[in-house]
Amino acid sequence: MAVSSTEIRRRLRSGLLQAAGLLLVGSLLGGGINAIRPAGLPWSGSWNPEAVSARHLQGLPEISLEEAWRLYQEGRSLFLDARDRASFELGHLPGALNIVPEEAAEFAEEIRSLSESGLVPIAYCDGAACPLSSQLARKLQAMGLQSVRILVNGWGRWRQAGFPVEKGE
């Protein structure tokens, strides 16, 4: 069973060469097939936070920080925090419900009746490129809740503006 060290060295030497060859073959195959397939990706995609955020938002109504703040002061904001539980408990927007995208269905009815009573549902998460609030809004939209709006990078911008936040449950 034991493999001699010279044998291992020999395998390493030819293995490294072969691995380089396989990498090359894989790259050529990947590049070649990507070039001819209809669903091919561009080699330089735009992955800066703004572009990613715009992709997430596609077709969803955005809300500005000023308008969200105004709605909050009027007592008409219904913040939906799409982040995980631990982040939510560390701090969230005032009165926010913690709903990760997977839980959208459980809260749909509650959100519907609250928005019928005049509250404006505003989904947010942390970071401009964070996909969670858009995922949540899309799920709620599919359940007929068209009025959900997105506060892009809500947590970050709300805090930066020095607006009040809540902690715990």
Binding site: L22, L23, G26, S27, L29, G30, G31, I33, N34, G40, L41, P42, W43, S44, G45, W47
Partner: peptide, 11 residues
């Protein structure tokens, strides 16, 4: 990101 996404699966 995209070059890795294009090449890695084939490797």
């Amino acid at each position: 990101v995209n070059p890795v996404a294009i090449i890695l699966p084939w490797v």
